[in-house]
Design a protein around this nucleic acid. Structure first.
Length: 487
RNA sequence: GGCCUCAUCGUCUAAUGGUUAGGACACGUCCCUUUCACGGAUGAAAUACGGGUUCGAUUCCCGUUGGGGCUACCA
């Protein structure tokens, strides 16, 4: 059974790159009938940000990518679910300790008492001499019993991995193919920090094994630490999971996607009023596509068609224009009711009356005209309250003010004769157009002032649909007001 | 600096040892039209460079250049 995991660090929020990694892991697991789980990697106490687990989970669930095991949300409460737990690394310290002890006993790891200061100087020298950087093995030759004594006496120390200094480490990445590293260039990585917490490298290997992870899908930035991980698998005698390193998401200038150049938190996109379907669809297509010309993909369809082997190797620029386009497409496909539901927080905030009957029709008018949810309030506002507009707005660009002054009262009079039963946009269009041509008025001469009077705006939906939403009385009121303005 | 890695329109990408190198976003023009949006049509726009291999290379190989990642007791 295939098992994948997403393993974020609680350092703030879910990054859009993280969303894509999570999505691909989820899709891969689902596609093959496997399980997707969530693990929290909180081994860095300095970067820990309170509430970030909740925030990350919220974003994941918003996107529709719910883990089935590990750290999950249960009625908005964070819970741990599954028998391979705990799924929060800070609760697994004793497990890492045991594994480090095993490594120590078998002399695959060693204590290191070097000070940060010494390490830094060492690095500087290596850089200066244009040599590869890395630990120089200073504590490698320490007598184990001597080292043990120093540890027992309370001296600060870390535990390092003993990396072989000859040969090569070769592995096959599901996306990159064969990758090889010279062992001599691989550092004796710290496995256990002086505060007793494991480093990422120890913790992932131990946890991925203990949690039966079959496929590791993660960002490209990890590929250079794979040899260390493989060495650990070897020392522990464990089977190595399959690995897929995803190309990074990029800023428009092609550097790694960063906060400075735009929004990177999923939360930001939620706040800006993007639909989860749009963000997911967009992000899924950054580095992957089905090879057909279909672009609109629901999560369900993604599960069906996703193929890890079709994921590209090059980084992809996070192009906001394309996201906007996707969002517009999904907005258009929403029913009026769904749209209101999605936009509810913004509608309420903007003081739009969401209880009346008119809201649903109003929303229908603007559905194709907005790009993100917060724009909806502003777009439908004129239905509830006619904006104050200048009389000139009523004058069609191909006509004169005099002509409009002539047309508008007649039009109002005619419209007044129409029955409320005919108050449907199709009927109104038929009748009014018929009237206009009978009177010898050009279409624009009638329709522009009508639309301007009804909307009070330069741009708006068509006059007939507005009139239908407004109803006969209000439409007539607005026409009368327009006539007054022109006088 | 060292190591790893990547390279098709501005962007996301498709394709093949022989194609008019296809699609989408964005952009231009036109159509629809009372405005905006939608929709339709259309245009401009790419195989980084240099060598090989080959009858033929964008595709395979090598190099160059450029980009990115890593190079922590961060993940």
């Amino acid at each position: 059974m295939i098992r994948t995991r997403f393993a974020p660090s609680p350092t703030g929020y879910l990054h859009v790159g993280g969303l894509r990694t999570a999505l691909y892991s989820y899709l891969f697991a689902k596609k093959h009938g496997g399980k997707f789980l969530l693990r929290i990697e909180d081994t860095d106490r300095e970067r820990y940000v309170a509430d970030s687990v909740a925030s990350i989970l919220k974003s994941l669930y918003w996107a529709g990518i719910a883990p089935e095991e590990g750290v999950v949300l249960d009625k908005n409460t964070i819970k741990q679910k599954g028998k391979n737990g705990p799924y929060i690394q800070s609760e697994r310290l004793h497990i890492y300790r045991e594994h480090v002890n095993k490594l120590l006993r078998e002399s695959h790891a060693y204590y290191c008492f070097c000070t940060p200061d010494r390490l830094e100087k060492l690095r500087e020298t290596q850089q200066f001499e244009k040599k590869p950087t890395g630990y120089d093995g200073h504590c490698l030759s320490l007598d184990p019993s001597e080292a043990k004594r120093r540890v027992d006496s309370g001296e600060r120390c870390v535990v390092r991995l003993k990396m072989p200094k000859t040969g090569e480490t070769i592995f096959t990445d599901m996306i990159r193919g064969e990758v090889r590293f010279k062992n001599e260039l691989i550092d004796d990585q710290v496995l256990l920090k002086s505060d007793g917490y494991p480093t990422y490298h120890l913790a992932v290997v131990v946890d991925d094994h203990l949690m039966d992870i079959t496929h590791i899908i993660r960002g490209d930035e990890w590929i250079s630490s794979v040899p260390k991980h493989l060495q650990l698998y070897k020392y522990f005698g464990w089977e190595v999971p399959q690995m897929a390193h995803l190309p990074l998401l990029l800023n428009p200038d092609k550097s790694k996607l960063s906060k400075r150049q735009g929004d990177v938190a999923v939360e930001d996109y939620i706040k800006k009023g993007y639909l989860p379907e749009a963000l997911v669809n967009f992000v899924a297509f950054l580095g992957w596509n089905p090879g057909t010309e279909q672009e609109m993909y629901s999560l369900k369809e993604l599960v069906k068609d996703f193929d890890l082997s079709k994921v590209g190797k090059a980084g992809a620029v996070f192009n906001i224009d394309k996201l906007n386009w996707f969002n517009k497409q999904y907005l258009k496909n929403l029913s009026n009711k769904e749209l209101i539901k999605s936009a509810m927080p913004w509608l309420v905030e903007d003081g739009i009356n969401v209880d009346g009957k008119i809201i649903e029709k109003a929303v229908g008018l603007e559905r194709e005209r907005i790009m993100v949810l917060p724009e909806l309030s502003g777009a439908i506002k004129f239905i509830f309250e006619l904006p104050d507009y200048a009389p000139e707005l009523l004058v069609w660009k191909k006509s004169t003010a005099e002509e409009v002054k002539n047309v508008l009262p007649k039009l109002a009079e005619f419209v007044n004769t129409l029955s409320v039963h005919d108050w449907k946009k199709e009927k109104l269009e038929e009748k009014i157009k018929e009237w206009g041509s009978k009177m010898g008025f050009s279409t624009g001469l009638v329709l522009w002032p009508l639309r301007a009077a009804l909307s009070g705006q330069e741009n708006s939906p068509g006059p007939f649909e507005i009139a239908e939403v407004l109803g006969k009385d209000e439409s007539l009121n607005r026409l009368q007001l327009a006539i007054k303005k022109l006088a």
